[in-house]
Nucleic acid binder design. Sequence first.
RNA 1: GCCGAAGUGGUGGAAUUGGUAGACACGCGGGACUCAAAAUCCCGUGAGCCUUUAAAGCUCGUAACGGUUCGAGUCCGUUCUUCGGCACCA
Length: 866
Amino acid sequence: MAVNKKYMPDEIEGKWQRRWDERGIYKTPELPRNKKYILDMYPYPSGASMHVGHLEGYVGTDIVSRYFRMKGYSVLHPMGWDSFGLPAENYAIKTGVHPEDSTRENIKTFKRQLNSVGLSYDWDREVNSSDPNYYKWNQWLFILLFKRGLAYKAEADVNWCTSCETVLANEQVVEGKCERCEAQVIQKKLDQWFLKITEYADRLIAGLDSLDWLNEVKVQQKNWIGKKGGINISYDVVGCDKKIDVFTTAPVNFGMTFLVVSPEYNLVQKILEGDVQVPKNRLLEVKGYVEDYFIKRRSVKAIDDKTKTGVFTGLYATNPVNNQEVPVWVSDFVLMEVGTGAVQGCPGHDYNDFEFAIKYKLPIVRVIVGPDGDLSPIKRREQVIERGMEGRFVNSEFLNGLGFEEGLQKTMDYFEEKGWGKRVTSYHIRDWLISRQRYWGTPIPMVYCEACAKEGRSWFTTEEGQTLHDRDKNVQGGMAGWYPVDEADLPVLLPKDIDFRPTGQSPITRSESFQEGVVCPHCGGKARREVDTMDGYVDSSWYFIRFADSQNDEEFASQKAIGDWLPVDIYVGGGHVVQHLLFARFFWKVLFDLGLVDKSLGDEPFLKLRAPGWILGPDSRKMSKRWGNVVTPDDIVPKYGADTLRMYEMFMGPFEAMKPWSMTGVEGMSRFLNRIWRLFEETGDEDKQVESDKRVLVLINKLVEKVGKDIEDFSFNTAISGMMEAYNELVELRRSGAKVNWVEVWRNFLLVMAPFAPHMTEELWQTLEGEKKSKVKGLESNVFSSIHQEKWPEFDPSLVQDETVEIPVQVNGRLRGTVTLDSDTAKNEEKVTEEAKKQEGVAKYIEGQQIKKVIFVPGRLINFVV
RNA sequence: GCCGAAGUGGUGGAAUUGGUAGACACGCGGGACUCAAAAUCCCGUGAGCCUUUAAAGCUCGUAACGGUUCGAGUCCGUUCUUCGGCACCA
């Protein structure tokens, strides 16, 4: 079996990659049985090439995919490109290179790099989100949502760079300034398309329970959705017929001493307009404050200064529980978009209210007493007791003595009975703003007709002017004038005659071809297309469905293909933990509700989720051009080979942990592969008929069991250390003259190592099998049987336990010796006790003492208590 | 500030339901081979103490302190540090 050659990865890796490709051994099975859909989050093909950090997840899923193929599963393991997005457009602005061209080049580089490490993707299913064949279905989905009333257009704040005159994504705003030109970023109101994800908020929470996801991620999603139960309370303003509606989760109303409204609150407008009378000096102060607010608000997005400011309006409102009149203030710490835009100040029991009360010397009333029994007036922050903390009601009449939570519920019951308020549920999650005033994205396939808009017509209205769709009522603005593009006319192509330099409008506005011959689908009059494009998150919210049927021209994916492959069994990727996963789950649920996803598939798309940890540079800093610490596969593969890269990267540490790259670590792994290669070479001439010692059989069976289990647990590092241990033991056994059937050993060893080091194991496998088949000339022959099409070895459960075990002997819990026994005896308490007492080190400690108790864990440990 | 995760040798890390802490590797030290080097192989490697020709033995040790237990890296409480997320959310 001698290879007669040094391990030269560069000589074997390319060769096998080509042969695997020719034979199509990673093609997805046509008729899946026992399917596993194993998916990586598809990458953005950036101009900076891929680095080893990207690879961690890809190698992990590759190992898992190869393992499940060997276990007899039909595996779908595809890859594609999230290729729409800002970097390509910014690059175009800077250099004039069209995004389409730079994207194509970047994809080429990424694909070459992925292939260089031997990843087993089925490239026949590749998707590319900037390809019209892909974004056609993106547009189709948008229309689907629109027709269901799940897409609407409304006015919203956007980040606006005053110098570039363009909209910026949140990530592009750094400390209130434009990332590119450092000019001031302001908030600007623009008409924007939204998707109604809030309608699914409850189901997005409920679905999480059944998923095999990191708890951390579930918690983050729940926090993002931010569901809270509370009550809306309506307060009468003294001296006029106005009311102030407040939302609160903690109506400790006997401790309520003021109300605060947002500067954008309706009542403030009424004051300024003179509709509600307030003293002159109050009016002036409110006016000044509100004007200042609008200027400030339009300036910086990130207001680091959280010092609270506010002014008294001169108005009072009545607290119904005790008929006390409390002052009404205006403050920008109350956000219009949260709750009702007005809050009740209960400064003893809310940190924000407390801070405000201290600053403006408003009264603070204690109505909750904590476990410390402190009943003194609340003067310090530490004394504040918020909802969720332990406490009982005091100074609250009929509530006194009740627990905090119980008292709040009783208060809400009481308010509802009296008609002063109504329980409501509030959410932190907002509808998903998908409009981008940018070029490099999917055009939103909508047409606007001015004439129809004037008549109040839209896709949702009938000839008689009636609402066609009941959901129209939910849609803000009524969508007058808006019609989806006819599905037969999709895709709406992204125009190419574009000057994408920023001017303050969507770049597509300046395309001459884009609006040519656009007519209103309803009245046939001249109309115009929407010029905004979609957020890239829309593309990535359903690409995993397209992979099931990526070449389909008739549908976004056939029902059969979806039923065959989805949901995704294992989903791996870092970052994007909150947004992408929420959006994708939302899309899936919508499709599920519409029957486009069969009910039997369930309403969750990703059953198991794992996130690879960051790989840091050798200097333990985040890999970045700036630090010059970026390691790419191109730095490693030519010198050490793909297998070393894969093995090292998986050996570094736990899959999900953050870990620094180490070049000496890479060399260490390279040495290990060389040792394997050499041992294989050296054991070639051993007698093949020999029957292995039981120790050898146990070693192999344990290895097969361990590696399989570890792969399923994503514990690749321990799988590899298991292989190293097995190697070390084999060397030791060989040295000690044990009988080893090396063919049998290698067959198992190579098979369990194959998912990790596919090239090297293939080379050795062909040598091994070639010998068996008396030289079929594996390399030249077209009929070779790849190790990657072999079955995963079975292990014999009776052979995974060592013949002898070492039992630690403790006295009073301290280790005083060990006894080595065969594994059966080690389970027998009497015998173990007998042996243990004979131990010199043990006898010393129990001599002359009375043994009070013996703790015996069969096969594990014995402990004498004296 | 709030929510979440994590702290183990010089380094990356291992350790079923609580049951021999430091597997495996890197680094380092020593040795073999060599004219020499590289490569390779072998031995040692948590800290301290004692005794010694040697073998062995003892004590401490998993961020800090306390608790539960025959026994704690693992469970409970408090504190500190680091990382991730959200952030004037009422």
